[in-house]
Design a protein around this nucleic acid. Structure first.
Lengths: 336, 336
DNA sequence: CTGAAAGCGCTAACAA
DNA sequence: TTGTTAGCGCTTTCAG
């Protein structure tokens, strides 16, 4: 049988109210009583049930985390940071892999509500706005990370994708590449990165080839297929901006397939700076997402809202950072 | 205000007991009453609090998952599968990153107990046996995945590391490599893999160089350092067996650093088959861990124990599978 | 500084 | 088939 506050109270010769006070370090208790209670708690290896407490206190100290798929290093990285920070703040994380599937999203949210989570962090696409609306009506705080849901006003932490795209492109341009292609997923973040790509060209006065902007691929295979087409074309690009590291890996595989030297014959830049970028051969130049900061900010925002410390919704927009490694170089004459 | 069972009962004109019954689909209720209650629940967007229920029913339908670090693709992969299966079985997962740090382990376990988890899955090294002992005394089911804790008898799911090491080595031997090195972490699983390496050599009647067995590295950097030493030695190896994919990436980076062609001049085989193996260039030959099966089995084992369906502890030992990709080939004459 | 007692939202006998 | 009632383990007034 689990040991309860009654067991502790009886053994310590005090009331449960007193025990409760020492557990929560609240109210006035004599040092002596406190010491005695603490000792008994120790002896009994007592852990107070947050369930029972939550019932009156209406706070579970749990947060739900909705993301598409942990097996994707990008989300794994964020999840890690979020969990860290949440734990620091005394909250536990309920992990939910939605696969960006509306049905799963709804199911998880329902489950999370039954579990009385104090708030929810959304890192998945979250197509299901109805569900979010319900949460809103039910007064369950929601914070969003790594995307913006323009239809709703929520606490949000994003990274400046436009700027990321701009800087990545700009770096390539500064290396004298004038023939740059983009491979992207079909996400809002991607289109912002692409916009950055375009504006960087305009600002530099370098024209870009619209044909070289390819989007709609989320898998390595998709990226590979597209890269093949790109590299087969007459005036093929000397550099490719892959909108995430995974896609960049696809590009690199095709380069090897075609016996194209990286970075001598083809420069590649990724986005995210996941473990893939660091471990790839050659190591990938990429725009780093500030995972640590992102995780920290979302949970802080959410926790603040939970604890009623902020009432207005806020948006943090962090900036990605260029990490130069070994997949980028000046275009060689050979290749032009 | 959160809507409660009382609100539903009142609005539906029935007692809370009746509502409880329809929630849990238990007892006898007329179709009519049931329909009415269901309708009201829908209208009120009611989600029963598992907290309150757990208080009497003594089951929270939550499971704690302890692992070192989600940012490590191996654990991310397992976590994903575990979460999937748990969810299928109606359980939610509490995520805990321990960094293999005893203090964190203890803190998390304490937190999990306060949250009244029904059971705990341990995927981290778990140095802290005292804590596990407490769980045992408290009758909290624990299942272990991807390792065995010989000191304790617990439900366990592992993969046959000896066999994995044997098969990896054997494949290399079958390719006619006779000069094979191993790079490993300092884990029990690694020593089993190394044992497999040795026995495979003995069985094939090929002597192996003890100097070529290097262990104690857990980072890419460590692997790189060691690979440099290995490749600098006079009679350097023609193949390297890296005891996990991440280490293999380190080996590949050094190979490129030294301008050594893979697989022509050096074969590499990894272990795990994480996303790294698939996306590396060239794609990595590796021993695949059966992540899906592992995840499924641990949660099934744990859930069975929770629900009292099994009383004896069980051990599943799954087998890894050789996935041949592009980092392995026959040794070239040049290199001998 | 300490304790008695009510109540949080739900379930589980037991009556009706 | 449905309702009454007594907890589950903890917190919180409010007295003492």
């Amino acid at each position: 049988m689990k040991v309860t506050i009654y067991d502790v109270a009886k053994r310590a010769g005090v009331s449960t109210a007193t025990v409760s006070k020492v557990i929560n370090n609240r109210g006035k208790i004599s040092a002596k009583t406190k010491a005695k209670v603490l000792k008994v708690m120790e002896e009994l290896n007592f852990e107070p049930s947050m369930f029972a407490a939550a019932l009156t206190v209406k706070r579970s100290y749990t947060i739900g985390l909705l993301l598409p798929n942990l097996a994707n290093p990008f989300f794994a990285e964020i999840a890690r940071k979020i969990e860290d920070r949440a734990h620091e703040r005394g909250y536990n994380i309920f992990m939910c892999n939605t696969d960006n599937n509306e049905e799963k999203e709804a199911k998880y949210v329902s489950l999370l509500r039954r579990h009385s989570v104090d708030g929810i962090i959304v890192a998945s696409a979250f197509s299901n706005l109805t569900v979010l609306d319900q949460l809103f009506n039910d007064n369950i705080p929601v914070a969003v990370v790594s995307q913006d849901i323009p239809a709703l006003s929520l606490n949000t932490v994003t990274v400046n994708d436009f700027k990321g795209g701009y800087q990545a492109t700009n770096y390539l341009l500064s290396l004298n590449h004038t023939n740059i292609a983009v491979i992207a997923e079909d996400l809002r973040s991607s289109s912002d990165r692409i916009k950055g790509f375009e504006v960087a060209h305009e600002d530099a006065g370098v024209p870009f080839n619209k044909e070289f902007i390819r989007h709609g691929f989320s898998s390595v295979e998709g990226a590979m297929e597209e890269t093949r087409k790109l590299l087969k074309s007459d005036q093929h690009p000397t550099a490719i901006f892959a909108c995430n590291d995974l896609l960049a890996m696809g590009v690199m595989q095709v380069a090897q397939e075609y016996n194209i030297q990286i970075p001598q014959e083809l420069s590649i830049i990724g986005f995210d700076n996941t473990v893939l970028a660091l471990s790839s051969v050659p190591a990938l130049t990429t725009m780093a997402q500030p995972f640590d900061e992102m995780g920290k900010q979302v949970v802080d925002l959410l926790v603040q809202e939970i604890q009623g410390e902020i009432t207005t919704k806020q948006t943090y927009m962090l900036v990605p950072e260029l990490i130069i490694r070994n997949t980028t170089a000046k275009p060689s004459i050979v290749n032009v």
